[in-house]
């Protein structure tokens, strides 16, 4: 199902669980028997700073994604989305967590359209809070992308991964948040 090679950028600010999302995709790659490389920001231990993770699945050598070649950008924060859009390739996919997707800069949205980049924004944090954990907005966002059917990963594979890497006490909640994201994505 999964395309041979996929490059993903995960962005957010400290404390939003970017590194957990990065684990979701690296474990997914492993599960599918594909080679995984990637990179993480490990800077000062301060909260609220930008965090970016790169994940490259399916036979890449280098850990970092070249600007203009990423297939998917997931951003847990509006501003971090703007800052990392340059990574996306022509025809890439962009999923942003923000309270009001309509507020995303109009000119930039038009520009993305010109580049055939599919843009989706929704309030993953709000959703995740409703279901019990703001920390799980990342899972909601990933679920949403699966629901749209645009990404090259399957529902079942991702669900398996979540099952294997979630901490026991979080598991049920994580799956529920994931499913809610999927349902929302399907409605798009």
């Amino acid at each position: 199902m999964m395309r041979m090679k996929t490059q993903i950028i995960l962005a957010g600010v400290g404390g939003q669980g970017v590194l957990f999302s990065s684990r979701i995709f690296s474990e997914l790659g492993l599960k599918l028997g594909l080679e995984v490389t990637g990179a993480e920001t490990h800077g000062m231990s301060q909260r609220g700073g930008s965090v970016v993770a790169h994940i490259k699945i399916g036979g890449y050598q280098s850990p970092i994604v070249r600007g203009g070649t990423a297939d998917i950008l997931y951003s847990l924060d509006e501003n971090e989305a703007y800052k990392n859009l340059h990574f996306l390739r022509q025809g890439g996919l962009c999923f942003v967590n923000m309270t009001d997707g309509g507020r995303f800069d109009k000119n930039i949205r038009d520009h993305l359209k010109k580049k055939d980049i599919t843009f989706h924004a929704f309030d993953a944090s709000g959703m995740a809070i409703e279901l019990g954990s703001v920390m799980a907005a990342n899972i909601c966002l990933v679920g949403f992308s699966v629901g749209t059917g645009l990404v090259p990963f399957t529902y079942d594979d991702l669900k398996d991964v979540l099952q294997s890497i979630s901490r026991k006490p979080d598991l049920e909640r994580n799956l529920k948040i994931f499913d809610t994201g999927v349902d929302l994505g399907k409605k798009q």
Binding site: G48, G68, N79, H86, I108, H111
Partner: peptide, 25 residues
């Protein structure tokens, strides 16, 4: 050598807060 200068300019025009590293709250 094709950087997306237009995008870079659009993002720059947003005047996003530059999060310079700072001591924690």
């Amino acid at each position: 050598v094709k950087a997306d200068d237009e995008l870079a300019k659009l993002v720059q025009d947003l005047g996003l807060p530059v999060r310079r590293p700072t001591l924690c709250a």
